[in-house]
């Protein structure tokens, strides 16, 4: 194999090594600071969640102080690791093309613990979160053929699957839906390709996120990880609703500009 330049060669190496290591969760990509922060956060979570006793999807109460800390200490991966993340897309493609169980095992080891972590932040107790994380990865296997690596990063696709399964659970809680066989059916709406050329590239998204102010990044993180709509986040942070809304609006405007100018 020949490489046009040094960078391509390096990125090839990175991709390979991540592929090999991915069976062992979380081998590379965090800087030393990131590791320390992550261990601290783990302890915080043990204290917050403790041993789960009640089987419920409702979250244990969390203080505004915890939310603020949570938003601050989330570790950031290095760009090199993000570059390696493209390998997860290849694994989903391998599952689609030849039912590759090794690729599935690697994906599972990387994403299932993170999906579980996400669901616990959204209020699920440990067992329920693990069940839903299982279901998320099984859905990845079943729907691998509809995954389009030119449209979305693997992590984005898996995030939306986990989120939709959570929504489905809420839907079933509300009212039982009789099973049927509808003739015309498609998943929740997806964007047209022209507008999305950039969304599959995790590196670009990371760079765009890095340009947000701390205030903007904080409200976006909280929107994702606190099981609360923006109105309640505003309450928890003791901020006027209008302030949270305008931070979200400015953050999105910046992401839009950053991602569009890179196209």
């Amino acid at each position: 194999m020949t490489f046009r330049c040094f960078e391509t060669w390096i990125s090839h190496l990175t991709r390979r090594s991540v592929y090999v290591d991915a069976t062992l969760p979380d081998q590379s990509g965090y800087d030393p600071v990131g590791r320390v922060i992550r261990r601290d956060l783990g302890d915080v979570e043990k204290v917050m969640y403790g041993a789960p006793q009640i089987k419920s999807l409702r979250p244990p109460p969390r203080s505004a102080a915890f939310l603020r800390r949570d938003a601050r200490v989330m570790p950031r991966r290095t760009e090199a690791a993000a570059r390696g993340a493209a390998v997860y897309s290849d694994m989903i493609v391998a599952i689609a093309q030849r039912g590759d169980r090794d690729a599935f095992a690697s994906l599972f080891s990387h994403f299932a613990p993170r999906v579980k972590s996400y669901l616990m932040r959204m209020g699920a107790v440990s067992e329920a979160a693990e069940e839903l994380a299982q279901e998320t990865l099984l859905t990845v296997w079943r729907k691998a053929s509809v995954f389009d690596p030119s449209r979305a990063a693997a992590s984005t696709w898996i995030f939306t699957i986990a989120r939709n399964l959570r929504i489905d659970l809420a839907r079933k809680d509300n009212r039982p839906i009789p099973a049927e066989d509808p003739s015309v059916e498609r998943p929740l709406p997806a964007a047209p390709e022209a507008l999305l050329a950039v969304a599959q590239d995790e590196v670009l998204i990371r760079r765009a996120i890095a340009t947000l102010s701390d205030d903007q990044a904080q409200v976006i993180r909280l929107a994702f990880f606190s099981d609360k709509p923006h109105a309640e986040i505003a309450e928890d942070l003791g901020l006027p609703l209008g302030t949270v809304k305008s931070r979200l609006r400015l953050a999105m405007a910046r992401l839009r500009v950053r991602l569009e100018s890179l196209q």
Binding site: L41, P113, T156, W157
Partner: peptide, 30 residues
Amino acid sequence: ADVERIEAVGGVFLNDLPPEKLAPDALSRA
């Protein structure tokens, strides 16, 4: 397109989360 941009941010956040320990038989059950 706006929603997909926000979802892409969600994907990055997911990737950055500290992994939660799974049951030892999680993968074999899957």
